[in-house]
Design a protein around this nucleic acid. Sequence first.
DNA 1: ACAAATTGTTAGGCTTGCCTTACAATGACT
DNA 2: AGTCATTGTAAGGCAAGCCTAACAATTTGT
Lengths: 141, 141
Amino acid sequence: MQEKLTSSLEDYLEVIYNFINKNSSVRAVDISRELSVSRASVSEALKRLAEKKLINYGRYDVISMTEEGKKHAEKVIEKHNALQYFFEEIMGLDGEEAGQTACKIEHIISENVLEKFTALKDFHKTNPEYAEEFKKYCREK
Amino acid sequence: MQEKLTSSLEDYLEVIYNFINKNSSVRAVDISRELSVSRASVSEALKRLAEKKLINYGRYDVISMTEEGKKHAEKVIEKHNALQYFFEEIMGLDGEEAGQTACKIEHIISENVLEKFTALKDFHKTNPEYAEEFKKYCREK
DNA sequence: ACAAATTGTTAGGCTTGCCTTACAATGACT
DNA sequence: AGTCATTGTAAGGCAAGCCTAACAATTTGT
């Protein structure tokens, strides 16, 4: 079901999802600003996402997401969050770099790897002493 | 010093480096087989790497690496190894998936993130009980 | 040494993803 | 309603990366 998307299209989808959830709608120009690309590029991306039936969209039309699109976006965001937690809370990177790194890796990891990161997060939450020990180790170097 | 390269060019560089170190020479066709791309694509990539002064190469010529090229390749390989260790020994993925994942992420992470992964590896080697605990946790789920 | 196989290059094509420029549609203000 | 700013689209261009097909150079085998 989950068709493979390019990193770029996943980025667009993610932004659309987040915007709709926050403000209940998105305009092409919002996406363009968020991703720092031209409005023309957004236009193209929307066309491609609509072709793949991940969003509902027609010329000058309101943007909405299909179920398929939502599912896909949620999966990407889930990966993002697991990675962000890992890099920030476990590896001790600052939020900025953790976020940037998560943004790139989220398009790469498989379902299986996501599960591992999620497990690691759960493990860390129930056993915070292990990560503490690692951070101490880093400081002492 | 370290000029930015695309993931693709880093892959070529890595293969060239590994081949030369193993067999003392590389041919375009070796690279083509290793990366599963056409010989034509290799030709283009070699031209681009030579332009960037990472390899020494001319028409029908032997391929050798410049100091700059070696340094860059070694850095990528260092990232690869740190990631491979992480995914295989710490996260418990099988070697195959650990390798594939490392291959993609190696092009993404910063020097800083590399250092973290390296530290985690050292930490894990001196304190194997922490990772053991995590693996146990995974098994019990 | 010469034919056959292998290897490397070139040319031309395709897709993705970006850009700019110019134009079309929409919205907001008076 | 008319004007102006904003927003969206279309057209045309560019680079990276890949491809195939045809051709050139090199190597191999006898």
